[in-house]
């Protein structure tokens, strides 16, 4: 969900062609996260493939030099994303890929989780995701950075 929100934030400041791409990816990620919260992760193998694809694509953007530490200038490909913003999305997608890989390797957990451990885990995860997401969004066009 955090990565989806960041991608939507990136879309808001992107060129028209990339706007559709980032908005599509972001919307898909948010939708997937809502479904995954209400039931066991849907299609884990396909989801893992999608997460890995996103990680690779974002790494390629980072390594291509088409970013800046502040408000980025657009590259030849038109990708203009501040470093911190795309790093946040990359980190969250990487964590998702790792969790999905673990799930595929070990299988779905069985049994009922007690209330307090569930809540502590949820709070820790939500705090980390919210911190990364808000910091990343603050560096995007939504946070007042003017991308071209």
């Amino acid at each position: 969900m955090g990565a989806g929100l960041i991608h939507l934030g990136i879309a808001a400041g992107s060129a028209p062609v990339l706007l559709a791409l980032f908005a599509g990816i972001g919307a898909l990620e948010v939708l997937w996260s809502v479904v995954a919260l209400s039931r066991p992760a849907p299609a884990p193998a396909a989801s893992l493939a999608g997460a890995v694809l996103l990680v690779v694509a974002q790494l390629a953007v980072l390594l291509s030099g088409s970013h800046d530490h502040e408000a980025a200038e657009p590259s030849a490909a038109g990708v203009a994303v501040p470093l911190g913003t795309i790093l946040g999305a990359l980190l969250l997608d990487l964590a998702l890929a790792a969790l999905l890989a673990l799930r595929l390797r070990r299988g779905s957990p069985t049994g009922v989780v007690a209330a307090i451990p569930f809540l502590l885990g949820t709070a820790a995860g939500a705090g980390a995701v919210a911190l990364i997401t808000a910091t990343s969004l603050a560096g995007s066009s939504l946070g007042g950075q003017h991308l071209h």
Partner: peptide, 22 residues
């Protein structure tokens, strides 16, 4: 302000994860 955004997103994630998942 930005601190509010972090708090709102964290609250949203905890409440949604609990509401949808538990």
């Amino acid at each position: 302000n930005t601190a509010d955004h972090v708090l709102h997103l964290a609250s949203a994630l905890v409440l949604l994860a609990t509401g949808l998942g538990a």
